[in-house]
Design a protein around this nucleic acid. Structure first.
Lengths: 237, 237
DNA sequence: AAGTGGTCTAGACCACCAC
DNA sequence: TGGTGGTCTAGACCACTTG
């Protein structure tokens, strides 16, 4: 039986203190230098242990403020969900949405394909950030098809689902969902406030009406440790 | 405009050499010490750059043999797929399955729940490893319900789909699929030949007959960089 | 201003794999 | 047996956040 490397032993000790309730969800870990000294090792090795716990989703870091204990994961149903606000609240968490902006753009090839338009056609790009219990959980870019959404640029976008239903009488179903494990880098990492290379999920969806009109194309970048995806296949009655 | 940290500059330079075709898919990177010297830095910093590329899925490591360029991702449809062998071949790759063993076990609470049995009931545990182009891509544990599978332990398990169809006349549909980003640790990391803490996906599924008989409960641990998940929602006709 | 995490250096020894 | 990656040390300076 080979002995475990030191950083995995440190991981186990920290994990035990967390699961014992010594360090409750949301609280901050002691400073790296303090932890390193208390374990009688260097910061480099301690940080290996922290990186383990981070990739397992047990802890996360916030800017340069320190390390925090993660809450339990959100359950996300990309096929059936109607509203982030709704399903987050249903799970006993406090949702918040931040609209970063909406702009008129010309469709790229990939966006045009998703919305059944031609490249260069007008589309609207909406960008938002989503929080659960004040922790940022994902950023999204939504490409809206203006053919079905007159004067869309003058609206408010905290709840797109409600806007589509109330103002346009549209109820979406989700098609062509893809889920790709990826690293968060560049402007996405910056918008999420994480370091480049932090693991994440890239999720895309197309929103259609029952008639097959392509209303929106959604691109989401999630932090890896905040969600479990659930796909329940519908029964035909 | 802040200058990028060195390890991200190194990442970009390596990325350029990879995407230019200088380093083709499947080939090995030069040794860490060689790369560090060629970039005029230390191994620690160079390894930060390699960790970035690894988390992005651009490169991967194999035991202590070195770093290799990744191939493109497999597309995986957990809802509709019938056979790993079939859909891997369909994507122009060479599948291989390795059976690690089958044992009679007593159902744990979670397994019993998934298979609609009582804890302690007999179940069979089948463990396999799956390869694409000779790269290990996931390990799985399949819990089989013996009520519907007489003398299952005497069979061969390279293709479970074929076995169920030919011998038992069973065609499965997939229910209650969950997908959780996780870290690969312990015996799972060892079986996959990766370091503890490597990012991965944990996917579970329940296989039912059209009559609702729970035949199997499937737990898969995938390497994060080898797949894109696609969920196509069926149309009702 | 003090403290935090982020980055980086220049070494070292070990375990494992391929030759 | 030689070379690889895996692990670890004992420092250092910087950028940012918080009080």
């Amino acid at each position: 039986m080979a002995e475990q490397p030191l950083y995995l032993q440190l991981r186990d000790q920290l994990m035990q203190r967390i699961s014992s309730g010594d360090l409750p969800a949301g609280s901050r870990l002691p400073a790296e230098r303090v932890l390193a000294e208390s374990f009688n090792t260097t910061r480099v090795t301690l940080r290996q242990a922290l990186a383990q716990l981070e990739s397992e989703g047990t802890i996360y870091r916030s800017n340069r403020r320190g390390w925090f204990i993660s809450s339990s994961r959100l359950t996300y149903e990309p096929v059936n969900d109607v509203s982030f606000t709704h399903y987050v609240a249903e799970q006993g968490r406090v949702p918040r949405t931040e609209v970063l902006g909406i702009e008129k753009m010309q469709a790229s090839i990939s966006v045009a394909t998703a919305l059944a338009l031609r490249p260069g056609d007008d589309v609207f790009r909406l960008r938002r950030r989503r929080f659960a219990d004040e922790r940022l959980v994902f950023v999204e870019t939504i490409w809206l098809n203006p053919c079905f959404l007159p004067s869309i640029e003058q609206q408010r976008f905290e709840s797109l689902w409600k806007l589509l239903a109330d103002k346009y009488g549209i109820k979406l179903t989700r098609k062509q969902i893809t889920i790709t494990p990826t690293a968060l880098t560049g402007s996405v990492a910056a918008a999420l406030g994480v370091n480049s290379g932090c693991p994440g999920l890239y999720i895309t969806r197309i929103g259609e009406t029952a008639d097959g009109d392509r209303i929106e194309f959604d691109e989401e970048f999630w932090l890896h440790d905040v969600l479990t995806i659930s796909v329940s296949t519908q029964q035909n009655h």
